Amino acid sequence: MNLADADQLLAPTPLPLEMGYERLDDGSLHIATRTDMHGCTGEMLEWWFRWRCDTQKYIWWHPIDHISSTWAGNLAADTHVGSEHIVVEKLTGIAATELTIQFRDPTEFFAPHLYRHARENSDISCAVTGRIGNGHTPPRTADGEVLGGRLMHMGRDTPWGLALRSHFYLGTDLPATGLTPVEVEREVPTDTAVALLQHAYNEFTFLSRILPGLHAAEHRDDHPPVAPW
């Protein structure tokens, strides 16, 4: 599935690639991970990214791979869009890597009318989308858009919890620099796809174990939690 076909993620029906990776014609990589987050909701996931975890909470999230976390950009309390997550993390055995994740409005990736319909129809209950850049000073466009790759975390509420689809595109902007598909493939090797696939599944499985309790504690004044007995 090419990035231009991302509107397919707005439908709840299974895709040909739900868990795995593929090399695209331009040499870039597409990685797909599905994580069943039992007891979680899309509201919880979007709140998590608005909460903007510090390093301690970032390590709570993935105690194996996560190393450090700071934030920049637009830090408005009511949205994660416009914020930038500046992290150091491992990817399932790959050496620690500096990354910048710039969260963007979903309509940058999806047709606005289709995205709106999917939200209204409960085909999706959350969308966390953005641009991924290598390093803490990644290349950018003149307008400040981070160049490198893309990420999309798309969730749908079910009776048992959140069905989360995570899709990553690595090397997305490299062909525009004049690199051939073979050169792009050299820049984003297949072992990175395997590592990211495993990392993302582990990351959100870990998060599913702590997210409901954290969300309940942080919202207890507005939504008093119900005791489980």
Rank of each mutant, 00 (worst) to 15 (best):
L29M: 01
G135N: 01
A195E: 02
D173T: 01
E187N: 11
N74S: 13
R140T: 09
P63S: 06
F109E: 04
G82Y: 06
A227H: 09
R23A: 12
L15I: 03
L10C: 00
H223W: 09
P106A: 10
E89T: 14
I101E: 12
D25K: 03
A72L: 06
L174I: 12
R165A: 05
N74G: 04
N121I: 08
W61E: 14
G144P: 08
T177A: 13
L75M: 13
I94T: 01
I67A: 00
E98L: 12
D65Q: 00
S125W: 02
D221F: 14
G82I: 04
T205P: 02
R104N: 06
D191G: 00
D191K: 05
W60E: 15
H85Y: 07
V188N: 05
L151P: 03
H215A: 13
T137G: 11
R150Y: 09
D157V: 07
G161W: 03
P63R: 00
E187D: 12
L114D: 03
V87Q: 05
G148P: 07
E183L: 04
L10W: 06
S69E: 14
C40F: 11
P14L: 13
T55N: 13
T79H: 02
M1K: 10
G20V: 07
F168P: 00
W229S: 07
S208L: 05
P181H: 08
M154R: 00
H62T: 02
A217D: 14
Y58K: 02
A163E: 14
T137F: 07
D123W: 07
L211V: 01
S208P: 05
A111Y: 08
G178N: 10
K90N: 15
D123H: 08
I59Y: 04
L211I: 04
P189V: 11
R116C: 03
F206N: 15
T129E: 01
S83L: 02
W48V: 04
P224C: 04
T177M: 12
D78K: 08
P224L: 10
L147V: 02
